[in-house]
């Protein structure tokens, strides 16, 4: 369906998604077993999710700019 053939595209999508999942499910699962820790604080987890969302938002903007250039050149 949608083209994600370029390695950089896949890398960015994986990076953004991984940061969101790490901040929510990943560290949440760790916290379930080890309890409250400084490195599990909202500063760390919230910032990881925020970074992931920023990466995905930047990628979305890039995709539309890049796709538009491609379709204009055709």
């Amino acid at each position: 369906m949608t083209r994600h053939t370029r390695p950089l595209d896949r890398l960015v999508m994986w990076l953004g998604g991984a940061l969101v999942l790490l901040g929510t499910a990943g560290l949440g699962l760790v916290g379930t077993f080890v309890g409250e820790r400084a490195w599990l604080s909202v500063d760390v987890r919230g910032t990881l999710v925020a970074l992931g969302l920023v990466v995905l938002a930047c990628y979305a903007v890039y995709r539309f700019v890049a796709d538009e250039r491609t379709s204009t050149r055709r």
């Binding site: 369906m1 949608t2 083209r3 995709r63 539309f64 796709d67 538009e68 491609t70 379709s71 055709r74």
Partner: peptide, 11 residues
Amino acid sequence: MVATTGTGTTR
């Protein structure tokens, strides 16, 4: 059902 549009996004 689904196809790719001119701008490369799913329709």
